[in-house]
Design a protein around this nucleic acid. Structure first.
Length: 552
RNA sequence: GUGCCCGUAGCUCAACCGGAUAGAGCAUCAGCCUUCUAAGCUGACGGUUGUGGGUUCGAGUCCCUCCGGGCACGCCA
């Protein structure tokens, strides 16, 4: 049931069992061959449940099929023995060589270990954050930023050509609102009376920016100037926060540009031409119900303005036209109603976009906990906690690691006290500490054994075969598989969990066996193992945007 | 009310196409530093996977009922 296994071993075992299957059940495609890691060590290193899946087709008892398969498996230098167990599992016990092999593979591959070319250089766009320029980024955006970045990095590691994009809703009602709020605060700053808009933005930051505007001799009643100033100022702030978080976008796409270059109007025309629209009550509607929506949606309001959903569709058309055959949108689940709508709009156009386009990763909200209580208010933003508050308080690495350490669709309780603790409780430091420890051992190796050859690729691992060492090796071998699954499911938390477990295996090993022993062959074997471990820790942390410190 | 998501140990969370005895961390308790970083290690305790049914060799996982929580249901974004 465990998640991952070594790619080398999997492909080796698959070959063996495919050959066996060809003899036992020639008509059966080899795709049913699969392996897993049993929970219990007594069930072997790997097990195969395929015999049970064959019972119906072959009309024989699963145990019997299992025995036939074992009899048909070719000899292998990696396989020690195989047994039939329980309802028909085939348990496979490997020789140490099979596990030791990965150490050399890692040392040879270095930074490239875990990478592959499954994506075959195809383009994928990850859209995330996409905050409106109406205020500072909040922790929810932080979750998106951490998720989006990690997903992007993981997909890139699997051979995809990744573009990270930020979509600014810099047109429409909310911006008008922002402008009106700014105007009111600017007038106040000049000591004049002003009516603050009913649904305006109440955060303290509006006052700050308005004061800046007034100080620069801005005219509060020049709404276009106010709008420009406010948006520019807020975008700059958001950029600073993202930089502080270590998040970099390849491209920013402005909603306003979709109006400016006629794409919004073009989409409306194109939709009208397909006969999926109609006029009603002075508005133009799209029959999204024909594409799975529960009600039709207005495209153009009776006042002539477009609803936000039209530029959304137009925007996604540009993704397709920019030849992103795959697109992933990371969004808060409070926007989940747009999923059906956007897809419906794209389908209605019938321009060859597949029905499930784009993919969505919806994440739930983050609540910030401190001293056992929920923190709701930031002094600057008013009604929410900003990403910057969090980074300043607990540090970038901890925020990054925490925010990707849970499934996106689980609600997130961010425990500030835990994230801040510089000691045993903190999973970030736990993983980083493993890395730093290894670096420290290597430093002492240099000092104590200056005559040792530094090239560990050639180290003999025959004696590196204790239970702990073999476990650690097996875990190292799992890494490529973990990445592959995390990429397929857009689930970076699997990588975070893996790294925690890997660090655990290492700490355990470190405490039980001394690395720098006098016997050179043993020493070199152990060093090779921990250098490989360090490499995987470093590679994995890198994908999550967390540093791998050499000293702590 | 309708739709989507979630419900797993006291707390926070894992569990790849359905696989064997459901796993970690925290908390609690008991141990380990004249040896490479104790930000660490070893062990113990802890469960009717919200409820009730169904599907099958096998269900935390798939289907249905109900309960509880979140979000969305606008000619806002």
């Amino acid at each position: 049931m465990p998640v991952a296994m070594s790619a080398e071993i999997r492909s080796h075992l698959t070959q063996l069992f495919t050959a066996a299957l060809a003899k036992v059940a020639p008509q059966q495609p080899a795709t049913i061959i699969d392996f897993e890691r049993p929970k219990q060590a007594t069930f072997g290193d790997y097990s195969c449940a395929s015999a049970m899946q064959l019972t119906r087709l072959l009309k024989r008892a699963p145990q019997q099929i299992a025995h036939e398969l074992i009899g048909a498996v070719p000899e292998s230098e990696w396989v020690e023995r195989m047994e039939v167990a329980g309802p028909g599992f085939i348990n496979i016990y490997l020789r140490p060589e099979a596990k030791q092999h990965v150490v050399r593979t890692i040392l040879r591959a270095g930074d490239a270990y875990g990478r592959n070319n499954r994506g075959m250089g195809n383009k994928v766009m990850i859209e995330f954050v996409s905050a409106n320029p109406t205020g500072p980024l909040h922790v929810g955006h932080g979750r998106q930023a951490a998720l989006g970045e990690a997903i992007a990095a993981i997909l890139a590691s699997q051979g995809w050509e990744v573009t990270r994009e930020f979509y600014y809703n810099d047109a429409g009602q909310q911006i008008a609102n922002l402008t009106a709020s700014m105007r009111a605060r600017a007038l106040e700053a000049r000591g004049e009376d002003a009516v603050f808009p009913e649904d305006g933005y109440h955060g303290e930051y509006i006052r700050e920016i308005a004061a800046k505007y007034v100080a620069a001799d801005g005219n509060p009643d020049d709404l276009e100037a106010v709008r420009k100033f406010a948006v520019a100022e807020l975008r700059r702030e958001q950029d600073e926060d993202l930089r502080a978080f270590g998040v970099v976008f390849d491209n920013y796409y402005l909603e306003s540009s979709l109006y400016a270059d006629g794409r919004v109007a073009a989409v409306v025309e194109a939709l009208a031409a397909t006969g999926t629209t109609y006029e009603h009550d002075g508005a133009l509607w799209l029959k999204t119900t024909e594409f799975g929506d529960d009600k039709d949606r207005v495209m153009r309001k009776s006042d002539g303005a477009y609803t936000y959903f039209v530029p959304d569709v137009a925007y996604h058309v540009t993704k397709w036209e920019r030849s992103f055959k795959r697109a992933v949108n990371v969004q808060g689940s409070d926007h989940h109603s747009t999923v059906t709508r956007v897809r419906a709009g794209l389908q209605a156009l019938s321009i060859g976009i597949p029905p499930g386009y784009p993919d969505y990763v919806l994440h739930k909200m983050v609540t910030v906990m401190k001293g056992g209580e929920e923190v709701k208010i930031s002094k600057r933003a008013g009604s929410y906690v900003t990403l910057r508050d969090l980074i300043d308080e607990v540090g970038r690495d901890a925020v990054r690691f925490f925010l990707v350490s849970r499934r996106a669709d689980s609600e997130f309780a961010f425990d500030v006290d835990l994230a801040k603790s510089q000691s045993e409780d903190n999973p970030v430091y736990y993983v980083q500490y493993a890395h730093a420890r290894i670096c420290s051992v290597l430093e002492q190796w240099q000092a104590q054994y200056p005559d040792d050859a530094r090239d560990l690729e050639t180290a003999d691992l025959a004696a590196t075969d204790s239970q702990r060492e073999l476990h650690l090796m097996q875990r190292l071998g799992d890494y490529p598989d973990v990445l592959e699954t995390a990429a397929r499911e857009y689930a970076p938390h699997q990588l975070a969990f893996y790294l925690r477990e890997l660090a655990g295996e290492f700490h355990s090993y470190y405490n039980s066996d001394r690395i720098l022993v006098p016997e050179a062959p043993t020493r070199r074997g152990r060093l090779a193992l921990i250098v490989a471990t360090r490499q995987v820790l470093r590679n994995g942390l890198g994908l999550l945007g967390v540093t791998a410190p050499e000293k702590m």
